[in-house]
Amino acid sequence: MFTGIVEELGEITAVETLDDACRFRLRGPAVTEGARHGDSIAVNGVCLTVVDHEGDEFTADVMAETLNRSSLGVLTTGSRVNLERPTAVGARLGGHIVQGHVDGTGEILERRPSEHWELVKISLPADLARYVVEKGSITVDGISLTVVDAGPDFFTVSLIPTTLALTTLGLKQPGDPVNLEVDVIAKYVERLLGGRVAQGDAR
């Protein structure tokens, strides 16, 4: 489990294209410290498994399903990425519960800078809109953020200078894709209530 608090802004140093997958080599001094084969590291919000590591770099395989459902397929050598290791049991939950299982992708629609923060508008797939609510949590490229406004096909978030400086959202421009993971609690609630509604209808 992750919390959506990005540890560092890493970099793709190599991309190897395979028949139905690809292999990334990534640089991230903080997340590779003590890393072992089989460990999990979130890359732009996608939970990937460490294949091997050397120095401050590690490699991870990305299967076709992940490439199709996330924005990882557009990454190239030199792309900057958000990196986070799983949270330790008993550690503070700085953001919210993040699984590293991307639900879909959105697109940066608009950026409105101000003196001390920036409002970013992001497109929202129709099948995810019901899970996004004003002042609720959402994960964008692995970053735990609070929704400012939730529309039928978009939402907005406010970014503080730290987020702009230390994550990919400080670099992305209108038209760029982002990975989205909605609050998993909302999905469980929907599942449970849906079952009860169905039972009630049967009566």
Rank of each mutant, 00 (worst) to 15 (best):
F155G: 07
G73E: 03
I143K: 00
A35V: 09
L109Q: 13
V62M: 12
R112H: 11
I160E: 03
I108Y: 05
T66K: 10
G55C: 04
H101L: 13
L9G: 02
W117D: 15
L9V: 07
V62P: 08
L128Y: 12
E54I: 04
V15K: 15
G4Y: 10
G200A: 11
G170N: 08
H53E: 00
V147Y: 06
R85F: 14
R196L: 15
V46C: 15
V178C: 03
A91E: 15
F155K: 05
A14R: 15
T59V: 10
R23L: 04
L193W: 08
V140F: 03
L193E: 11
E65M: 08
T163S: 13
S144P: 02
M1R: 06
S71H: 11
T32N: 08
D52I: 00
R203H: 11
I143W: 05
G104Y: 05
I108P: 02
R80D: 10
N44E: 15
G142M: 05
G104E: 06
V62R: 09
A64G: 01
V81Y: 13
R25C: 07
D61N: 14
T139Q: 00
D183I: 09
I122G: 01
G195N: 12
N44G: 11
P152F: 14
D201E: 14
L67R: 09
A35Y: 05
R111E: 02
P161W: 10
A42N: 09
W117E: 15
T87Y: 05
G136N: 12
G78Y: 13
T162A: 13
N44S: 14
A129R: 14
R191H: 09
G90R: 00
I122F: 01
F155T: 03
K135D: 02
G55S: 01
A60M: 09
